[in-house]
Amino acid sequence: MKSLTVFILLLCAFYSVNGQSSSSNYTQKMPFPARELSFNGFRNPSIGLEYRYKRFSMHGGYYPTIISTSENGKGETTSFLRAGVSYFFLPIYSPTHAPSSFYLSASYVRGLDQEWKAKNGLLAEIGFKWVVWKGLNLRLGVAMLSGNGSKVKINPTPGISYSIYLK
């Protein structure tokens, strides 16, 4: 958790130095694409699809995470169906591709197994979406999962996706 906090602070510092620059590299900034469709291949926001319009997105899919431990102390994967919305802010502009940015997300989850089987929950998340190259994206976030009768769980939420920009 400490390393994620340091990472986020470093990104904020980078943004404050480079995001406001008037150098020629940043005069032709790529804005958020008007419309984007992402194919999410690993966990964040889910293994599924995400549609973004400017700074807002909707997502849905399968979400596996380790939130419980077995009797022998090993983590067990709990599976969910996840659907929600995200808001992207503090963009770090690039002259060649869509900007990387921080995001906030709120989702409804429905448990598929373990102690969450057939239970509903809410998942709130904050993180950073890094546009590595063209449509390749990496995400790192922290999520808080809560549900009726269950303890609140805090988990890291890494992800990888590929986006296509729609006209």
Rank of each mutant, 00 (worst) to 15 (best):
145 L>Q: 07
123 L>P: 02
144 M>G: 13
144 M>E: 09
65 T>Q: 08
76 E>A: 10
132 V>K: 09
107 S>W: 03
93 Y>P: 03
140 L>G: 15
164 I>G: 08
128 F>Q: 06
16 S>V: 13
79 S>M: 04
4 L>G: 13
20 Q>R: 10
143 A>P: 04
19 G>W: 04
127 G>D: 03
142 V>Q: 15
139 R>H: 08
26 Y>F: 13
80 F>V: 00
21 S>I: 10
74 K>S: 12
58 M>D: 00
3 S>N: 15
52 R>Y: 01
63 Y>W: 11
144 M>F: 10
65 T>W: 05
26 Y>N: 12
143 A>M: 13
103 Y>E: 01
61 G>N: 00
66 I>C: 06
108 Y>F: 02
30 M>V: 15
138 L>V: 15
37 L>D: 05
5 T>G: 12
21 S>G: 12
16 S>C: 12
138 L>G: 12
120 N>G: 00
10 L>R: 10
95 P>V: 13
6 V>C: 08
27 T>Y: 07
3 S>W: 11
153 K>R: 09
107 S>Q: 04
32 F>K: 02
12 C>F: 14
107 S>D: 06
74 K>D: 07
19 G>N: 02
107 S>T: 05
7 F>Y: 15
9 L>I: 14
166 L>D: 06
167 K>Y: 10
5 T>R: 14
151 K>D: 06
56 F>I: 14
137 N>F: 09
132 V>L: 14
66 I>K: 14
166 L>T: 07
82 R>A: 06
24 S>A: 15
33 P>K: 10
11 L>I: 11
70 S>D: 15
156 P>E: 11
55 R>T: 12
14 F>H: 10
76 E>Y: 03
15 Y>G: 08
19 G>S: 03
135 G>H: 13
67 I>R: 05
107 S>R: 01
26 Y>A: 09
17 V>A: 13
150 S>Q: 04
57 S>K: 04
52 R>L: 06
65 T>L: 09
23 S>D: 12
122 L>W: 05
88 F>M: 09
161 S>M: 07
33 P>F: 10
15 Y>I: 12
79 S>F: 06
53 Y>Q: 11
9 L>M: 15
2 K>I: 14
8 I>N: 09
7 F>L: 15
121 G>E: 01
152 V>R: 05
151 K>P: 01
127 G>Q: 01
45 P>C: 03
109 V>S: 00
15 Y>K: 09
55 R>G: 03
125 E>W: 05
93 Y>K: 04
